[in-house]
Design a protein around this nucleic acid. Structure first.
Length: 126
DNA sequence: CGATTGACGTACG
DNA sequence: TCGTACGCCAATC
């Protein structure tokens, strides 16, 4: 894992620190999503201090797709628990990956979302 | 350097 | 309640 630059707990993440890219901050948070849990783009965006840049989170993950990575990007869904990024997964279907972690999905929609939702803002004690 | 993009979110009808 | 419109902002073209 490439966490050498800064850890999410570093307060600098909440500053206008341009020394690290927005992408890397997203990667840090995504890497910390517990197995069997999911979070949303908006939740990550809020944690990073750019609540209105939720689209950027998706953009970051899109860039991730272009290069080899071991991040649980499948654990990131939209606020409704819908697997909007499924189309971007080339390997095993996103829903399968989640299902293997014990997450129930029906028609690309995560069931019992509240019980599996992982909010970085509270989990990481913002 | 300006225009476009995008795996979202909120507002509005 | 559901579908559509628009804003958002960093990265890319």
């Amino acid at each position: 894992m490439f966490v050498t630059k800064t850890m999410p707990t570093d307060k600098r993440l909440h500053e206008k620190d341009k020394s690290i890219s927005f992408f890397e901050m997203v990667y840090e948070v995504v890497a910390l999503i517990p197995k069997g849990k999911v979070t949303s783009y908006g939740a990550i965006a809020r944690y990073l201090g750019t609540a209105k840049s939720s689209r950027m989170v998706g953009w970051a993950l899109n860039a991730l797709n272009k290069r080899p990575h071991d991040l649980p990007a499948h654990r990131v869904v939209n606020q409704k628990g819908l697997l909007t990024g499924k189309a971007h997964f080339h390997g095993k279907p996103m829903e399968d990956l989640l299902a293997e972690e014990g997450i129930e999905i029906k028609d690309l929609q995560i069931q019992q979302l509240d019980s599996v939702f992982w909010d970085p803002n509270s989990a990481l004690s913002l």
